[in-house]
């Protein structure tokens, strides 16, 4: 049988493929809404502490490396471009292209995590990790430490999401290679793409809020 003539697989509970695709996307957007609120608690905490200790946040933020943070923003934005092309390749049934684009997205995710690792190491060496090791020679060390608690909590939760995303992309790359997303069965790639873009959006907010506080 000619493979290209196979129809996409429609679950019994759906009327047709359009409904199935819409249901998958709606489910993912609802999950992303819960993710917004999951990160939202941390953004709220950030807002209140920044409102309360504004000036100290400005001084403390300058300890962060804008070059590394900014580069990481660009890395994630470009990874989102690859992801968008991956979803396009899946829709066009380009198996080989899809596999490589998913691997490329995962690799840029790894670049992001490596840069983040270098940054975390610098923070550790500079005694900026909160806890017993923390050292601050400016005014109000407790509020400065609070900023770093928030910084590590927010970037840490985001880093966990990137790590999960890298894992998803690699599994999808393998499945794509095996032809699991051919013949219109590209739902999984599309909603994984939504997740990856969401993680990108979170970083788009973290970068200015943590690295570009006030005038540098």
């Amino acid at each position: 049988m000619e493979a290209a003539n196979l129809p996409p697989l429609v679950g019994q509970q759906f009327d047709d493929i359009e409904q199935q695709r819409e249901a998958a996307k709606l489910g993912m957007w609802i999950f992303l809404a819960t993710e917004v609120l999951f990160f939202g608690g941390l953004f709220l905490g950030y807002t209140i502490y920044r409102f309360t200790y504004g000036q100290i946040f400005v001084h403390t933020s300058r300890k962060l490396d804008v070059l590394l943070g900014g580069t990481n923003t660009a890395v994630l934005l470009i990874s989102s471009l690859l992801m968008a092309f991956a979803v396009r390749a899946a829709k066009l049934d380009q198996r080989r292209m899809l596999t490589w684009l998913l691997i490329g997205t995962a690799l840029l995710g790894c670049v992001f995590m490596s840069i983040k690792g270098v940054e975390y190491h610098k923070d550790y060496v500079d005694h900026l990790v909160p806890g017993r090791h923390f050292e601050w020679h400016g005014a109000d060390p407790h509020s400065a430490e609070l900023f770093f608690w928030i910084y590590f909590a927010m970037t840490g939760l985001h880093a966990i999401h990137v790590t999960v995303g890298i894992g998803i992309m690699l599994v999808l790359a393998l499945l794509a290679w095996l032809g699991k997303f051919s013949h219109g069965n590209h739902n999984t790639v599309e909603i994984a793409g939504l997740y990856w873009h969401f993680v990108d959006i979170v970083w788009v907010f973290l970068f200015p809020l943590l690295y570009l506080v006030g005038h540098r």
Partner: peptide
């Protein structure tokens, strides 16, 4: 669905 999470935030 996309704006719901933002509005609650």
């Amino acid at each position: 669905a996309a704006v719901a999470g933002m509005i609650w935030l």
